[in-house]
């Protein structure tokens, strides 16, 4: 079973994939980047963000949760899907308070980087502008909920990699926020700055204190190369 391979087609290119692999993983191995925010290579998939939705035999599916099957025909980098992705990104921007010019994660932010890659110029949907609570109770880490996109990476990393279950979701729908396993904030939890959960946030929501703006403009992660180019380049060698 382990060595069984299946053949799928992504954007017209035939790709060999391991049986049981998720579509996004098979695409990564073949050097084809599918945009993503909640998916992280070290964590089990959840399908929260909808950015990785591709068309599988004409039907929209989230590529991080759907396993490959022999003969699947997948559309990924199409104008239709990328337009949907830009709208999904716009929704994330207007649901939070993302002030890129003053954010210390700017330039290293995956949300922003997906916007750059997919050519989102400006969110044109109406802003929600709700005020969410900042948690600065921990000596080394802060939570700025205004920037949370509810990807759940910290929830998974804390539970599965750190064995601590520091984070969880609270509320439903537009009221949903990230919460911590303590009454008076992150400072009361077992969270440590060395935990995996402290380093998986795709935006500026969960950040280490006292290291902001350490990389100058022009040298930041996504200043010159789009997010995903490491995946595209790895396969070309």
């Amino acid at each position: 079973m382990r060595d069984k391979t299946v053949t799928i087609t992504i954007d017209g290119k035939q790709v060999e994939a391991k049986a049981g692999q998720k579509i996004i993983e098979a695409a990564d191995d073949a050097g084809i980047y599918i945009p993503r925010l909640c998916h992280h290579k070290d964590l089990p998939p959840r399908g929260h963000c909808r950015l990785c939705v591709v068309k599988v035999d004409g039907r929209p599916r989230s590529s991080c949760t759907i396993p490959v099957e022999e003969g699947m025909t997948i559309e990924n980098d199409t104008e239709e899907l990328n337009a949907h992705r830009r709208t999904v990104l716009e929704m994330m921007f207007v649901e939070g308070n993302h002030f890129c010019p003053s954010c210390e994660t700017s330039g290293n932010c995956e949300l922003q980087a997906e916007g750059y890659r997919l050519g989102m110029v400006v969110p044109k949907l109406p802003y929600i502008e709700t005020h969410r609570e900042v948690d600065a109770t921990h000596p080394d880490i802060f939570i700025n909920r205004d920037l949370c996109i509810l990807c759940g990476r910290c929830v998974r990393a804390s539970a599965l990699q750190d064995g601590k279950t520091v984070f969880a979701f609270e509320g439903r729908g537009i009221e949903k926020v990230i919460t911590v396993n303590a009454e008076h904030g992150l400072g009361e939890t077992l969270m440590d700055v060395a935990d995996a959960a402290a380093h998986v946030c795709p935006t500026g929501c969960l950040r280490t204190k006292r290291v902001g703006y350490s990389v100058p403009v022009g040298e930041r992660k996504y200043d010159h190369n789009p997010i995903g180019s490491e995946i595209e380049q790895a396969a070309s060698h």
């Binding site: 890129c100 954010c103 700017s106 922003q112 750059y116 890659r117 050519g119 110029v121 010159h224």
Partner: peptide
Amino acid sequence: LDYELLKYD
């Protein structure tokens, strides 16, 4: 705008 010119900051 080209990739390196499209910036939000």
